[in-house]
Deep mutational scan, measured.
Amino acid sequence: VTVDIKGMEYHFDNPEEAKKFAERMAKELGGELKVENGTLKVE
């Protein structure tokens, strides 16, 4: 699973970990979490 945090890509084997990480980063950065082509994106 790929997580894109404002252009920086992180790769996770575990989808649950990827989702938790993306949600935490969205909250910390005040960004919006989206799913695009199987990639979790925070913008």
Rank of each mutant, 00 (worst) to 15 (best):
N37Q: 06
K19T: 10
I5V: 11
I5Q: 01
G7C: 13
L29T: 07
L29I: 09
G30R: 08
K6S: 14
V42W: 02
F21D: 01
V1F: 13
V42L: 05
H11A: 05
E43A: 12
T39W: 11
R24I: 10
K41G: 06
P15V: 13
V3G: 01
G30T: 05
I5C: 13
G30A: 07
R24K: 13
L40D: 06
G31F: 11
V35E: 12
E32A: 12
N14P: 00
L33Q: 04
F21G: 01
K27V: 10
N14A: 05
V1M: 12
K19I: 14
E17I: 04
A18F: 02
L29H: 07
K41M: 10
E17F: 03
I5W: 07
G30W: 04
L29V: 06
E43K: 11
I5E: 02
M8I: 14
L40N: 06
D4N: 14
K19F: 15
V42P: 05
K20T: 07
A18K: 01
G38D: 09
M8N: 11
K19G: 05
T2F: 08
G7E: 03
E23Y: 00
Y10F: 13
G31N: 05
V35L: 08
E17D: 12
E28K: 11
K6E: 15
L40Y: 07
I5L: 06
P15I: 14
R24G: 09
G31Q: 06
A18M: 01
P15A: 13
D13C: 14
V35T: 10
M25V: 07
L40S: 05
Y10K: 04
L40M: 09
K19P: 02
E43Y: 13
M25W: 10
V1C: 15
F21T: 01
E43L: 15
V42G: 05
L33E: 03
E43P: 06
A22F: 08
D4G: 07
K20D: 13
K20Q: 12
E36H: 10
A18D: 02
K20S: 11
E32D: 10
E17G: 02
F12N: 00
G38L: 01
E9R: 14
F21P: 01
F12S: 01
H11L: 09
H11T: 09
P15E: 13
G30H: 11
V42N: 04
E43I: 15
M8Y: 12
I5M: 03
K20I: 12
K20H: 10
E43T: 14
M8F: 12
E36I: 14
A26K: 04
V35Y: 14
D4P: 02
E9L: 15
E23V: 03
K20A: 13
K41F: 12
Y10R: 05
K20Y: 06
E16A: 11
K34P: 04
M25Y: 05
I5N: 01
E16R: 05
K20N: 12
A18I: 00
E36S: 10
E28W: 12
E23Q: 04
F12P: 02
G38A: 03
A22C: 10
L40I: 15
T2L: 11
E17K: 05
K34N: 08
K27Q: 11
K6Y: 15
K41D: 05
E36Q: 10
L29N: 04
R24H: 13
D13I: 07
A22R: 03
D4V: 15
L33I: 14
L33W: 05
G38I: 03
V1N: 07
K19E: 10
M8L: 12
E28M: 13
G7T: 02
M25R: 02
E28Y: 11
V35K: 06
N37S: 05
M8T: 13
L40E: 05
K19R: 14
G38R: 01
N14W: 04
M25S: 01
H11N: 07
A18P: 00
E28T: 09
V35A: 08
E32S: 14
E9M: 13
T2P: 02
V35I: 13
G30P: 03
R24Y: 12
T39H: 12
T39Y: 13
H11V: 11
M8A: 08
H11I: 10
V3M: 02
G38V: 01
P15H: 12
E17H: 05
E32M: 12
L40V: 09
A22I: 09
K41V: 13
E16G: 07
E28F: 11
H11D: 04
A26N: 04
E23P: 00
A18G: 10
E17L: 05
E43W: 10
E9A: 08
V42Y: 01
Y10W: 07
V1Y: 14
K19L: 15
A18C: 08
D13K: 07
T2G: 02
G30L: 07
E17M: 06
P15F: 15
V3W: 00
V35Q: 09
E32V: 14
N37Y: 02
P15T: 09
E32Q: 14
N14Q: 04
E23T: 02
E9Y: 13
G30S: 07
M8V: 14
Y10H: 09
E36C: 13
E16T: 10
R24M: 13
G38E: 07
K34V: 14
P15N: 07
L29K: 03
L29Y: 06
G38T: 03
E36P: 03
V42E: 04
V3H: 00
V3F: 00
K6V: 11
F21R: 00
K27N: 09
G30F: 07
P15G: 08
L33A: 05
A22D: 02
P15Y: 15
A26C: 13
E16P: 00
H11E: 06
L33M: 09
R24F: 12
K19D: 06
A18R: 00
A18L: 03
K6P: 02
E9Q: 13
F12V: 00
Y10G: 02
V42K: 03
V42C: 08
H11C: 13
G30N: 11
A22Y: 06
T2D: 03
E36R: 08
M25P: 00
K6W: 15
G31P: 04
E16V: 11
A18H: 01
P15C: 14
E9D: 06
I5F: 08
G7Q: 01
R24E: 12
D13H: 07
